[in-house]
């Protein structure tokens, strides 16, 4: 199946000389939820801005469902809904007014039933006549999502959708995303919350310093995630791992003062009990023990620091 968005050789250099994006090549599959992770200033928002038409690229091309974003911008943009990171709203406009405005702007005929459905799905129906200035931060964010959905987009960009949103509301957003995905909408979300990517994404991309450094199926990343490390602080340092323990794939760390065991939490036997018994038999004593789990966050941090 051809990707719904294909990005090739895309770069962006600002007038100041700052290169926000180096050569980006990326394909987004139809119907997937793609999570784009990256530290602040990595180029996430710049990338989204170019695809949506808010910034001009310096080089490269983007095709949205086969339409070039520059030559055929009308067809490309009418497929896309964008929810930016910042809460940009017309303070004195009503919720209903601003959402209807968005639909008109995208050239769609009036459809009060659709707007009502969007507002109800986002629990905004009872606020439809309220001025935006009177709403809470979480409601304003949902208004921005409603604006993006007002024109029935095929692709939805969510730039940090749950930043500053409480836990309950975040779960609500996730439900909305799942419903949209089920209806065939492709979702690209950027996030700081690794947990959100773990929960929602089909695929994960990591961007750093303007480059995509990893794109992988979340399931594959989760396999790495499933691994745990147990670290034993030894009473007296070892120079090498005793041959009696060779089956455990142990490693020495910190000049032989630490013994590290890596195991899979998902397997039936972690091997911890037998390891500890074998250690006792080998006469190796330890003063302390700690376990750490490698998370998507660790993978992310190690990628970004590299």
């Amino acid at each position: 199946m051809s990707p719904i968005i294909s990005i090739s050789g895309l770069s962006k250099t600002y007038a100041t000389g700052f290169m926000a994006l180096k050569t980006i090549d990326l394909g987004i599959n139809r119907g997937e939820i793609f999570a784009l992770l990256g530290p602040n200033g990595a180029g996430k928002t710049t990338l989204i801005s170019i695809i949506c038409g808010i910034a001009n690229p310096s080089t490269g091309h983007v095709l949205v469902d086969g339409h070039d974003i520059q030559r055929d911008y009308r067809a490309a943009r009418s497929l896309i809904g964008l929810v930016p990171q910042e809460l940009h709203t017309d303070a004195f406009e009503s919720v209903w007014g601003t959402v209807s405005f968005s639909r008109g702007l995208f050239g769609k005929p009036k459809n009060p039933a659709h707007i009502e459905k969007v507002l109800r799905d986002l629990s905004l129906w009872d606020k439809k006549d309220s001025k935006i200035v009177t709403l809470s931060g979480g409601m304003k964010r949902r208004v921005m999502i409603a604006k993006a959905l007002s024109h029935e987009p095929q692709i939805l960009f969510l730039d940090e959708p749950t930043a500053g949103v409480d836990v309950e509301l975040r779960k609500g957003m996730w439900d909305v995303m799942r419903t949209l995905q089920a209806s065939g909408v492709t979702i690209i979300l950027t996030t700081h919350y690794i947990e959100e990517a773990e929960e929602m994404a089909d695929r994960v991309g990591v961007i750093n310093k303007g480059e995509i450094i990893l794109v992988e199926e979340k399931a594959k990343l989760m396999q790495k995630l499933g691994r745990k490390r147990m670290k034993l602080h030894l009473g007296s340092p070892l120079t090498e791992v005793p041959t009696a323990l060779s089956t455990y794939n142990l490693a020495l760390a910190d000049d032989g003062k630490e013994l590290v065991y890596t195991y899979d939490t998902k397997s039936e036997r972690t091997g911890i009990t037998s390891l500890l018994a074998d250690l006792r038999d080998a006469g190796i004593k330890f003063t302390d023990l700690e376990t750490t789990q490698s998370s998507l966050e660790d993978i992310f941090v190690s990628l970004v620091r590299a």
Partner: peptide, 14 residues
Amino acid sequence: FVGTIYEILSAPVS
């Protein structure tokens, strides 16, 4: 100034 320009720029308008 308030940032709502994003919507105009991302809309299919000439």
